[in-house]
Design a protein around this nucleic acid. Structure first.
Lengths: 248, 248
DNA sequence: AAGTGGTCTAGACCACCCT
DNA sequence: GGGTGGTCTAGACCACTTT
């Protein structure tokens, strides 16, 4: 026989700075703290709650990070209103997401070949036209249906050619795991919207003209080396993203 | 005659915690710190750089916030690789954005009327079907062309009816500036993609079937009151969003 | 000059992880 | 038990803003 562990009420066991942050946040949600209001000086908050200044500042830092407060040196700490018509959206790493859901990505290769690079990808990767690069097309599937069309140019490394088997699995990071000098350190993304071409629609088992997210991607390795460029097309009928709300 | 103030090299004048954060960040960008590496214990970093533990922790907190480091209590602080296939995108408040660019938004009313609310918006706003609400359509223009189509249901307040002139200007926050109980405290957004209907295309001076961003919006006031619901359609040929990279 | 937030120190104890 | 990060204190000085 097994017992289910009762969830303990941990509200009162949490650190002082979290309690204070929650208290102030609740006061805002109840309309007691209003945009434009100035908070009491930090030392006064210390007295009120019986906390040291560092602890109080730790609480305020959370709320500043959330965008609820704004500090102005020499003037005070002020309540800021929420940005109602804009927000922050997280588009998660697709591979990582599927892995977390226990549905490993299937990414069969559509195309994988060595090409003489043309002007646009050459410029993006910062190499000369006509140099060789790997061109790659994949359809990423999760939950038994095609979801993302991935198209990439990858820098060619004669010292360690990539195998077809490697190209069909995992993200760029996984791909370069054994390339010490090519390990990604940064990725620049650009989010746009598009409609499916007939080829994309066929590969994604959808319909031409349907809307889709498009994410252009430039992958940087150490020392400002660009190692991959391409874009990913996300089926619009399968993806939507909530704005981020940071928990207290 | 005017002198241009030479920008002073402030690298060395910045606070110690920022210098330390930059140092570690640079080491990562140069490939000296690699994903999976464990940093030295905090006390050791203190000795190395001649700083107190609080200052070192302040530096590490920045890098944790950036996603470069991960702390594990009892184990250590570890370097995390970047998420190359996903990212964070900021879609700014359109009104705010235009104001910052010195191009105040023009938002002529297309429709503004009191309606008996139907099932879907009633459910979203948490009120009963058949209650009155304000229905609003606007085209937001900036830089001399229509960019966003905004459609909203707004809770009706008999005590303080909104004037047509007020509806044509500014965001929900501006609209409710004089409604103490309706001041927005939170906004839930949901980002999807769509194609323009013929009506939307006409209003936005575009073409039906063109792709567009769509942001559904639910605005909350104090005490869990929902005050507005609707969605905004952003012309796909005029908007694209880079992923956020937090500066050190 | 007074008040505010920004930075920093030296030291303490606790919670968690590993061996 | 030893090492690690997590929390917290009391106090100091500095930089900026306002009066």
């Amino acid at each position: 026989m097994e017992f289910v562990e009762e969830p303990v009420e941990r509200m009162d066991e949490s650190p002082a700075y979290q309690k204070l942050a929650r208290t102030l946040h609740n006061q805002f949600m109840e309309g007691k703290l209003r945009p434009g209001d100035r908070l009491p000086p930090e030392l006064e908050i210390c007295e009120t709650f019986g906390l040291s200044r560092i602890t109080v500042r730790q609480a305020l830092a959370i709320l500043v990070e959330q965008g609820l407060l704004r500090r102005e040196q020499g003037r005070g700490t002020f309540v800021v209103g929420p940005r109602v018509d804009g927000g922050v959206f997280v588009i998660p790493d697709f591979y990582e997401e599927m892995r977390l859901r226990g549905r490993p990505t299937i990414a069969p290769l559509i195309t994988a070949k060595l090409v003489m690079i043309t002007s646009i990808p050459a410029e993006k990767l910062g190499i000369v036209q006509g140099e060789p690069a790997i061109y790659l097309e994949r359809v990423l599937s999760g939950e038994d249906e095609p979801l993302v069309f991935d198209r990439k140019y990858i820098l060619y490394n004669p010292a360690r050619p990539l195998l077809e088997a490697e190209l069909g699995e995992g993200s760029i990071t996984d791909l370069f795991r054994e390339f010490p000098d090519w390990l990604p350190v940064k990725s620049d993304l650009y989010l746009t919207v598009t409609t499916l071409s007939s080829r994309e629609a066929e590969l994604l088992q959808s319909t031409p003209g349907k809307p889709a997210f498009c994410i252009e991607q430039l992958v940087w390795a150490a020392n400002d080396l660009r190692v991959a460029w391409g874009w990913m097309v996300y089926r619009g009928d399968r993806f939507g993203f909530p704005s981020m709300t940071r928990p207290i």
